[in-house]
């Protein structure tokens, strides 16, 4: 991982039957050899990942993969993280700040309970703005509204970087487009090998097919075909449900098994 730079990702497998799961690098302590990933339990694989305990191991991790985020001194930068996307903007915000930028981070979640990495985010930027959809913490509304407000007030923004749900990134692209703010987003399409070999992660950018795993994951938000990306992300919804249902029932079974065999 010595080579890892902000914006890159890893692919991990939990066990021999596991799928290859791409995960953004949330933080990296090269001295201690600690790689941090942050995930939300949304399907079978992430739910299973959530059952691992300290000291457990993964069968394999490969990385860094992908083209690193281009870092330079733009001036005023805004990093926008939505939900689990707060994690991958963290190393980018840090690097932008180290490159001499004034970095404002806007991090948002559905509610206060789902807010993550507040302290780390605060330490990585010059100014931190928090928002929640339900208003339980910070600004009441979406991260995109916070940025829109800044731009409307005439605040100078030279560069925006964002990671979050596709719908959020699409909304963000619409906010920054009229102000011609250079906006880079990190995409998370379905992947398999992560080295450009299979093309599962193809996205249309500026009317051209790109492979997110090697050409990205960063792309110009104003050129991404979001509708196609949304549809492609839903390709395996049915199978994802089958896998999740199976996993839940296997957990229930083993819990039941434990109960019945516990000595009285």
């Amino acid at each position: 991982m010595e080579k890892a730079r902000p914006g890159q990702f890893v692919i991990l497998r939990i066990d021999e039957a596991g799928e290859r799961i791409p995960m953004s690098i949330a933080d990296l302590d090269k001295k201690k050899g600690i790689l941090t990933i942050v995930f939300q339990e949304v399907g079978k694989s992430t739910a299973q990942l959530g059952t691992l305990k300290q000291g457990d191991s993964l069968v394999d991790v490969v990385g860094p993969l992908g083209t690193p985020t281009h870092i330079e001194n733009y001036g005023n930068c805004v990093c926008v993280g939505g939900g689990i996307g707060i994690a991958p903007i963290h190393p980018v915000a840090k690097a932008l700040r180290e490159a001499g930028n004034y970095v404002t981070s806007i991090i948002g979640a559905r509610n206060k309970e789902l807010m993550i990495m507040e302290e780390e985010s605060k330490a990585a930027c010059d100014k931190l703005i928090i928002s929640t959809d339900d208003g339980s913490y910070g600004f009441h509304g979406f991260v995109t509204q916070v940025l829109a407000g800044m731009l409307e007030k005439g605040e100078k923004v030279d560069f925006a970087f964002s990671v979050g749900p596709v719908l959020m990134m699409r909304a963000l692209a619409r906010v920054t487009l009229p102000y011609k703010v250079k906006t880079i987003i990190s995409l998370n399409p379905i992947m398999v090998d992560g080295t450009g070999m299979c093309g599962a992660c193809r996205v249309t950018v500026d009317n051209q097919t790109k492979f997110a795993c090697v050409d990205g994951p960063d792309f110009d938000a104003h050129l991404v075909d979001f509708e196609e990306l949304l549809k492609r992300q839903r390709m395996y919804l049915k199978q994802e449900k089958v896998a999740m249902d199976n996993f839940v029932s296997s957990l229930e079974q083993s819990a039941h098994h434990h109960q019945t065999h516990k000595p009285a």
């Binding site: 039957a17 799928e19 290859r20 093309g199 599962a200 199978q239």
Partner: peptide, 22 residues
């Protein structure tokens, strides 16, 4: 074909859901 075959061969998607890859 690379993706289709990789899913089926390397990732053993033919035995989904015993193997996770669909």
């Amino acid at each position: 074909s690379n993706e289709y075959l990789t899913r089926s061969n390397l990732m053993k998607a033919y035995s989904f859901p015993e193997n996770d890859t669909p």
